[in-house]
C-alpha cells in the first residue's frame, strides 16, 4: 500500500499506538489513556449518522479535552455506578489503513487514497479532511480502522463494533491522539449503556 510510504509515521508505529490506546481503554487505565490526547482533543461517538453538525445535533459522546477530563474524573471517583464495577472489556482492532499522511518531499498522495473514505467533513470549524497544519503541532495522519469489542458485566454481554477514525499527531517525538470518531455499526438503533471508554 503506497500510502504507508508517504506517511512520516509508518504503519507499524501507528498500529502499535492504536493497540496501546485500545489496551488502556480495555483495562480502565484512565491516566495512561488521558495522556495520549492532545490539548485540542475531540472524542466523538455519533448517534445515527456522522453527516451532522455535532454542535447542533445530539451525539452519544462529543467530548472536547475538558470534557474528556471530566468524564475520566467521574470514572476515577469509583462512584460512577454504570462503571462500578467496571465492565470487563477486550477489543480487536483490524483493517488499519492510513487514509492520509504528511507528504514527504517529492511524493504525492495517491488519488486512490484521497478518493477513498473522506473521514470527517464535520470537524468543528469545517476543516477539509486530509493533511493539515494545526496551530500547536505538525501534520496529522488520518487513520481508519475497524473494531470489535466484547463487554461483559452483570447485565450481560454486549458486542460492540464499528469504524474508528483517528487523527494522530507527533508531539515532542511521540504520537498523540488529536481526534477519535467511533461510528458504531448500530448507531441508529437503541444502544445499551456505554459508560466505558470506546
Amino acid at each position: 500500500m503506497t500510502a504507508v510510504a508517504v506517511s512520516e509515521l509508518d504503519l507499524r508505529q501507528i498500529e502499535q499506538f492504536l493497540y496501546r490506546e485500545a489496551r488502556y481503554a480495555d483495562e480502565h487505565d484512565y491516566d495512561a489513556w488521558e495522556a495520549l490526547w492532545t490539548d485540542d482533543a475531540l472524542y466523538w461517538v455519533p448517534a445515527g449518522a456522522d453527516a451532522v453538525d455535532p454542535t447542533s445535533q445530539m451525539s452519544v459522546i462529543y467530548d472536547n479535552r475538558s470534557r474528556i477530563s471530566t468524564r475520566l474524573k467521574q470514572l476515577r471517583t469509583g462512584k460512577r455506578h454504570s462503571q462500578s464495577p467496571p465492565s470487563s472489556l477486550r477489543r480487536v482492532i483490524s483493517n488499519v489503513e492510513v487514509l492520509s499522511g504528511e507528504v514527504l518531499s517529492g511524493e504525492v498522495l495517491s488519488g486512490e487514497v484521497l478518493s477513498g473514505e473522506v473521514p470527517d467533513g464535520q470537524v468543528p470549524g469545517g476543516e477539509v479532511p486530509g493533511v493539515e497544519m494545526r496551530g500547536g503541532g505538525g501534520a496529522e495522519t488520518i487513520v481508519g480502522a475497524n473494531f470489535m469489542l466484547a463487554e461483559s458485566r452483570a447485565r450481560g454481554t454486549e458486542i460492540w463494533a464499528g469504524r474508528t477514525t483517528y487523527r494522530l499527531r507527533v508531539v515532542d517525538g511521540e504520537i498523540r491522539l488529536a481526534y477519535k470518531k467511533v461510528l458504531l455499526v448500530n448507531c441508529d438503533q437503541p444502544l445499551p449503556t456505554l459508560a466505558f471508554l470506546i
Partner: peptide, 28 residues
Amino acid sequence: NKRMVSQSIGSVGPAGMLLADDTEMYER
C-alpha cells in the same frame, strides 16, 4: 441552543454522565 445540545450530550443517553447512572440503577 448550542449550549443545551452540548450540555445534553454530556448528561443524557447511553454515555451520559447523569443518565448512564440512572439507567444502571433502573437495571439493578
